[in-house]
């Protein structure tokens, strides 16, 4: 017998020998809020040290351009998603690199990509969470490697809570990599002192658009 079959057979034998009395499931009266609570999205993200701007969708490029001037952000890295196209069309950024060739651009992404911009496919209002799917037009490392990450997300793409999001993915299927992001990367591994930018972005900037 193969190890797999031996393990499964031991489990089946053990289960037959002492059948379980399953733990009674609670009578759930879980009320899923009908609409996502936008205020909770903002306050949870801010509590997690993210910076949040709310505005009409048409307004974020101008706002981001002035923020970029103020912070002196020059070298932008993007994928081929909607936010990238809008940002390139806006034309205010001195340099926009499209990340599409892993082997050719990986070293540069790690060494000299200070800031990335991407679109989030959705969010979870309850916990202040951005939902980012891996897609051909949206490389997963863009939300991970550069020290500053700017995310565009639409208010109408938010789920009220995680159960609602799970219902959606159970129905529509999972992308190869589904990532929930709830703030910049952080650690409290040294004497319980919170430090941001452990391995991922130090700064997370969210444009929540109507």
């Amino acid at each position: 017998m193969k190890p797999r079959d031996r393990i499964l057979s031991r489990l089946r034998h053990g289960r037959a020998a002492s059948p379980a009395t399953p733990y009674p499931a609670p009578e759930t009266t879980a009320v899923t809020p009908s609409a996502p609570n936008i205020d909770s999205m903002v306050s949870a993200l801010e509590a997690a040290h993210a910076q949040v701007f709310r505005m009409a969708e048409a307004d974020w490029p101008d706002h981001l351009a002035s923020l970029a001037t103020e912070r002196n952000w020059q070298q932008w890295w993007v994928g081929r998603d909607e936010a990238a196209a809008t940002w390139q069309a806006h034309g205010s950024a001195p340099s926009v690199t499209v990340f599409e060739d892993w082997d050719g651009q990986k070293a540069a992404l790690f060494d000299s990509a200070p800031i990335s911009l991407s679109q989030a496919q959705g969010g979870i209002a309850d916990t202040g969470t951005l939902i980012v799917e891996s897609r051909p037009e949206a490389p997963r490392t863009l939300s991970l490697v550069p020290p500053v990450h700017v995310v565009i997300v639409r208010e109408d793409s938010l789920f009220p809570d995680m159960p609602a999001a799970m219902v959606f993915y159970s129905r529509h299927g999972m992308p190869t990599n589904l990532i929930f992001i709830s703030g910049p990367s952080k650690t409290a591994d040294i004497q319980q002192t919170m430090a941001y930018g452990a391995h991922g972005p130090r700064e997370l900037i969210v444009y929540l658009c109507r």
Partner: peptide, 21 residues
């Protein structure tokens, strides 16, 4: 914490049309 910074759900290796992973 109410939620961790990352919840990373992996359902397969990089697909042919994907750039990384």
């Amino acid at each position: 914490q109410a939620i961790t910074t990352y919840v990373n759900m992996i359902s397969g290796p990089r697909r042919e049309d994907e750039c990384d992973g």
